[in-house]
Amino acid sequence: MGDVSDYLAELDAGDRAVIGGILTRAAELVPEATEGRSYGMPALRYRDSPLLSVMRAKGHIGLYPFSPAVIEAFAAELAGVSRSKGTIRFTAEQPLPASLVERIVLARRDEIDAAKSR
């Protein structure tokens, strides 16, 4: 097992379903992504860069696309959602729309591709 799989195995069923669903979809969207760690968190990595982490925190689930620019690009759609420069916070009861998560993942992938092609 990898870092992400090990982390998911530790979660309760509800959190595992939400977090695992996001990570599974991200891996489908970016099949070259591999399990690893970034900033001490279990994460999907793409082209040796952190792509995405999703982790349980006290009172919320945090989605970490490792890019303030990606979070800012979706600021209008994230209006009313708790966020910071590096984190988007949500709950299982009020999840992020799947289409928004997909676009965040793809935007981060494209950002990595652009940085690696310089």
Rank of each mutant, 00 (worst) to 15 (best):
L44F: 05
I71Q: 02
S67R: 04
G40M: 07
G21C: 10
T87D: 09
M55C: 14
R47D: 13
V81P: 12
R108D: 01
G14I: 01
I61D: 09
Y64A: 00
V4M: 08
G62R: 03
M55K: 13
M55S: 11
A33C: 07
V105H: 06
G21F: 02
A17W: 05
S53L: 09
S67M: 07
R37L: 12
T34D: 05
R118L: 12
T91Y: 01
V18L: 13
M1S: 13
V4I: 12
E35Q: 14
I88D: 09
D15N: 15
S82T: 13
G59F: 14
A69E: 15
E77N: 02
L23H: 10
V70S: 01
V81F: 09
G14L: 02
G59K: 08
H60D: 05
K85D: 00
S38I: 12
I104P: 00
E77C: 01
F66W: 11
G62H: 06
A26R: 01
A69C: 03
L8N: 10
V4K: 14
S5L: 12
S84R: 07
A33H: 11
D15W: 00
P65L: 11
R118E: 13
S38N: 10
Y39T: 01
E32C: 03
A17G: 05
I112G: 11
L96K: 07
P31R: 02
R83Y: 00
S53D: 04
S5Q: 15
F74L: 02
L100I: 04
G20M: 06
A33G: 07
R16G: 03
A26N: 07
L23W: 11
P97L: 08
Y7I: 10
F90G: 09
E72I: 00
L100Q: 11
V30D: 11
L44V: 02
L106E: 03
R83V: 06
R109S: 09
R45S: 09
R108I: 02
Y39G: 08
S82C: 01
L106I: 10
T91G: 07
D3A: 15
D113N: 12
P65I: 13
K58D: 15
H60C: 13
L44P: 01
D113H: 06
S84I: 06
A69K: 01
Y64P: 04
A27Q: 15
S5C: 02
G86C: 03
R37Y: 13
G80P: 14
Y64V: 09
A115H: 08
